[in-house]
């Protein structure tokens, strides 16, 4: 009796799991086989593609790193401290997710153009229509995901785990590095993955703030847009698929890289 119940339960889970996997594989496969193989070869050899890959990787990784820099303290404060209006601020930090990217882009454009533009220009730090703008836009889009997941990860830690470390001789900073972060590792990795994936695929806000300029602010998403808008769907889809593969490889590498030596 017991075994059959277990089987039905697990069966349903596995069924959903397999269906989703098939769906996603077919979705990606559709992109893959809709294009022609020749297109892949030409994409891989195209210098513009090389630029876009390198550019996308460093901008998205930088945006993710910056998102982490912001999200770690924000998530920690939202998780550990209580202050008036906390829920309000917590909610505020989710709002950028809801905004259509175009709106985020316009908002950033207004901030870094009319509002801060002159001051930044004097510092030689132009954001609008520059590569920095790409990072800013990606960072803006990716950060809320990181904050929310990091907060969640910190929430799930028993504060007494940290207390014990204090009594064992660790300063608050030591506790954070030696106890809090290792304990929150799963959530932090998940958050980083989400943030990075989102930065990687970001198009709307980037296009608005940084402009769409070949070989200058051309991320893979922008390259896809450009190729689609001149009707070169094959090239666009081949780019998308290769982008997926790059992302896939990097994600796995990241997991292996971060996962060695530590088993939770």
């Amino acid at each position: 009796m017991l075994t059959t119940r277990i089987n039905i339960f697990q069966g349903v889970f596995w069924l959903i799991f397999i269906l989703i996997t098939i769906f996603l594989v077919v979705l990606v496969g559709g992109l893959l086989f809709y294009g022609k193989w020749a297109a892949f070869v030409s994409v891989i050899h195209h210098p513009e593609f090389h630029f876009a890959v390198v550019f996308t990787l460093w901008t998205s990784l930088l945006a993710t790193a910056l998102a982490a820099v912001v999200a770690v303290p924000c998530g920690f404060i939202l998780s550990r401290y209580s202050f008036p209006g906390k829920v309000l601020i917590d909610t505020l930090m989710d709002i950028p997710i809801v905004l259509p990217p175009l709106v985020s882009g316009i908002a950033l454009l207004i901030l870094f153009g009319p509002v801060l533009g002159d001051a930044l220009a004097r510092l030689g730090m132009d954001i609008v229509f520059s590569t920095r703008g790409v990072v800013v836009a990606q960072w803006f889009i990716a950060t809320p995901f990181a904050i929310r997941t990091f907060k969640q990860a910190f929430d799930s830690i028993d504060p007494r785990m940290e207390n014990v470390a204090r009594t064992l001789g660790y300063s608050p900073a030591g506790v954070f590095v030696r106890v809090t972060v290792p304990l929150a590792k799963g959530g932090i990795l998940g958050g980083l993955t989400m943030a990075w994936a989102r930065a990687l695929g970001e198009f709307g806000a980037t296009a608005m703030l940084a402009g769409i300029t070949r070989l200058k602010t051309e991320t893979l998403s922008v390259a896809i847009f450009l190729n689609m808008s001149i009707g070169d769907i094959q090239f666009a889809m081949a780019t998308a698929v290769i982008m997926l593969l790059v992302a896939l490889l990097l994600m796995i590498a990241f997991k292996v890289f971060a996962g060695t030596g530590v088993r939770l």
């Binding site: 316009i106 454009l109 009319p114 533009g117 132009d126 296009a207 608005m208």
Partner: peptide, 12 residues
């Protein structure tokens, strides 16, 4: 989109 950017002072 280009019109929006120019209205917001993008350097075109």
């Amino acid at each position: 989109a280009l019109q929006q950017q120019i209205e917001q002072g993008a350097p075109a």
